[in-house]
Design a protein around this nucleic acid. Structure first.
Length: 343
DNA sequence: TCTGGGGTCCTAGGACCC
DNA sequence: TCTGGGGTCCTAGGACCC
């Protein structure tokens, strides 16, 4: 028996949920995001494969998406619906009895001891399909990193195994940004060091990378390129570190009295989230995004841990007072932070 | 005709203490 | 007298991910 990590990833989850409850959309280019009006500020949350053929992808501004695909069906994001289906998916997954760590609405890691992990992966796909009619892809690896990256090679609806044996054959020549946790910025900095590919990063001088990225991140980058990572899958309940709410205004807010009023409104919603969490907040952070797109944050600790609306509102206003710039505001956010998890 | 919303983790720099 | 060095905590920002 060998210990494997499986990464389960639902295929175009949000679009698939929408098609499920509106079967007439099947086969059409569907774009979900914002409140469904592509003339407004907002970005694409998910695009169906048909919509992707028009160059529409997640993160794309809705206004750009509608220009690229005027015939796409635009739908509002419906968190409640996705959370409900996600719950069904994860329940089906857990019913197989393996340790399962949920990573979001549409992703989970599963720990499996088996000589035939592909067989277990097929069971996962069948169980989820029966429970929800949804397709998923399963990546198989010796650790979380390998499993996570394997999934990308199995889509859609497939199974793919990536191990230390095959790691460099599959990924060695790929750009460093193909790795989980390396984005455009880090790839750019690595390129300045002459490191372009996964193989080059894997064989790079750790000290040189650490000098550029710090004593924790540097060695982590090199290990990641070698396919080395934790194989731990936690079945413990998830404890959030923070809860936040934010709003992008359709028109920038210029009146600072209105800014204060909006912060109070958002703080009220955050309070509800904190109460639902049944753990007191210890710090409140306010985020302001000014026109055109400059973002800044300021926070204040609470005098004592609290879930009281008045305390959270007071702290949010105190944090807001730290902002001296009165330029027009396009986004406001309020975040409540919980105490760290003591072992 | 720009650039959502909800999260996590790491780093750098200043404050503060001995 | 013109200034050390280490450690820790806090804050703001950066980067990444779904």
């Amino acid at each position: 028996m060998t210990a494997w990590v499986l990464h389960v990833d639902l295929d175009q989850f949000i679009a698939a949920v929408e098609v499920l409850r509106r079967p007439e959309l099947r086969g059409l280019p569907v774009v979900v995001g914002g409140d469904g009006d592509p003339a407004k500020r907002g970005v694409v949350a998910t695009a169906s494969y048909e919509a992707r053929a028009f160059g529409v992808h997640s993160g794309l501004p809705l206004r750009t998406a509608v220009r690229r695909c005027p015939d796409c069906v635009f739908l509002p994001a419906d968190r409640t619906a996705y959370e409900a289906v996600s719950e069904e998916v994860m329940t089906a997954l857990r019913s197989l009895g393996a340790v399962t760590e949920v990573m979001g609405w549409d992703e989970a890691f599963v720990a499996v001891d088996s000589d035939d992990p592909e067989s277990f992966a097929r069971q996962i796909q069948q169980r989820i399909k029966i429970a929800t009619q949804l397709d998923c892809t399963v990546g198989i690896g010796e650790n979380r990193l390998q499993a996570k990256l394997a999934t990308g090679f199995g889509k859609p609806a497939g199974i793919y195994r990536l191990t230390s044996q095959s790691w460099f054959d599959v990924l060695g020549g790929q750009p460093t940004s193909a790795l989980w946790g390396i984005g455009a910025k880090t790839a750019g900095k690595l390129a300045e060091l002459g490191i372009m590919t996964v193989s080059q990063l894997a064989t790079a001088d750790v000290r040189a990378v650490a000098a550029r990225f710090g004593p924790t991140t540097g060695p982590w980058l090199v290990l990641t390129a070698r396919g080395i990572a934790s194989d731990e899958v936690s079945g413990e309940p998830y404890l959030p570190r923070s809860r936040s709410r934010e709003v992008t205004f359709q028109q920038d807010v210029t009146d600072w009295n209105q800014v204060r009023a909006e912060v109070l409104e958002i703080a009220g919603r955050v309070t509800a989230d904190v109460l639902a969490e049944q753990r007191p907040a210890v710090r409140i952070v306010v985020k302001v995004r000014y026109r055109p797109f400059f973002t800044s944050t300021h926070g204040v600790p609470l005098d004592q841990p609290s879930s009281e609306r008045s305390a959270i509102e007071r702290a949010a206003l105190a944090a807001l007072e730290k902002f001296t710039d009165r330029r027009p505001v396009r986004l406001l956010g309020v975040r409540a932070e919980f105490a760290g998890n003591e072992a």
